[in-house]
């Protein structure tokens, strides 16, 4: 088992280093700003005194390295500083919204993952049939559509015309779970449509790849019935690719969620990011970017660790 532990530790270490480098990129990119942050926030017309005051307030007179470590230390304890536009604590603005975003992503994932993997396996088994071709065309179409296109179609038909679900996903204080699920159904469905298509295609490719292995042919030539070929011979080896597909797509959800939140005016972290970008509210931008990137890296990390854990060659070393 020593092999596995050291492999996983190595992978975790690598993830940590990546995260560190990314925090450096996010922080120092803002330093590349023509002029400095104070200048960017206050605009061209700002007086010298105002600029100096803001610089003092933001601690811009300290060297960049020092400020980076202060920022990183704060970020680790959940403190991302103050918004330069509203003056609120960034953490206060973001934390609730982050929970909302996670809820939306989880909602979509709970529907999409089992659905997509089942469909992907079925399509792989029925490969080169009419059903497979139709599924191929449909998933390609779904992948190719921008999230806002799917979102507006759903709003048009399910909210405006059929009046089944609300078009705008506003969340107020206390909603029952049913009500909450109903209100967020359309954004979740949009995400499901995109992610399912991606996931189905990847699952199909992974399974087909697997079914071409000599040991699957051997199982067939041993007279193993088709369902047993899948369950006993293909599935135990399919975990790693499937885990990978799931993690990749959950990571994809994170990017998709930004556009969907804007379409449905959903109070999530994606919205705050877009607002902050257009208002050039850098502390908020940095905080959001770091959170998104960290989630993304963690998911990829989880996939790699999962793949290591399910690899029979590593589980039973020589």
């Amino acid at each position: 088992m020593g092999d596995i532990a050291s492999l996983i530790l190595k992978r975790l270490g690598l993830g940590l280093i990546t995260l560190l480098i990314i925090s450096i990129i996010i922080f120092f990119m803002v330093e590349l700003l023509p002029g400095d942050i104070a200048q960017a926030v206050l605009g061209q017309g700002a007086t010298e005194e105002n600029l100096a005051a803001l610089r003092e307030q933001m601690g811009l007179n300290d060297p960049a390295i020092l400020r980076y470590f202060q920022w990183l230390g704060g970020a680790l304890t959940g403190d991302f500083g103050e918004s330069v536009v509203t003056g609120e604590r960034v953490s206060a603005v973001i934390s609730d919204r982050f929970v909302n975003t996670l809820f939306l992503a989880a909602y979509a994932a709970v529907i999409a993952v089992p659905f997509a993997i089942t469909l992907g396996v079925i399509v792989a088994l029925l490969r080169n049939t009419l059903f497979d071709r139709v599924a191929n065309v449909l998933t390609l179409t779904s992948i190719s559509s921008p999230e806002f296109f799917l979102g507006y179609i759903l709003i048009l038909y399910l909210a405006v015309k059929a009046q089944m679900f609300p078009a705008i996903a506003s969340l107020s204080g206390d909603l029952s779970l049913g009500e909450l699920l109903n209100r967020t159904f359309l954004p979740a469905l949009t995400l499901v449509l995109v992610v399912t298509a991606h996931m189905m295609r990847m699952t199909r490719a992974a399974i087909i790849n697997l079914l071409a292995s000599p040991y699957i042919e051997m199982a067939r030539l041993k007279g193993t019935p088709p369902w047993k070929v899948i369950v006993r011979h293909a599935l135990p080896n399919a975990w790693a690719p499937i885990i990978n597909v799931v993690a990749l797509n959950l990571a994809y959800l994170i990017t998709g969620v930004v556009l969907v939140e804007v379409v449905f005016v959903y109070p999530g972290i994606g919205q705050s990011l877009v607002d902050a970008v257009s208002k050039r509210d850098f502390p908020v931008v940095q905080a959001c970017c770091l959170i998104f990137a960290a989630t993304f890296i963690l998911l990829n990390l989880a996939a790699d660790v999962g793949a290591i854990l399910t690899n029979p060659r590593l589980r039973h070393p020589k």
């Binding site: 000599p214 040991y215 042919e217 199982a219 041993k222 029979p312």
Partner: peptide, 29 residues
């Protein structure tokens, strides 16, 4: 297949399922 006609493949390393013990694959048929 397996019962009255059996098959021995060229690459045994690729034709045994990496996820199961040899004897479990042996006793499958």
């Amino acid at each position: 297949r397996g019962s009255r006609i059996a098959y021995v493949a060229q690459s045994a390393a690729a034709s045994f399922n990496p996820a199961h013990k040899l004897i479990d694959q042996h006793t499958e048929a």
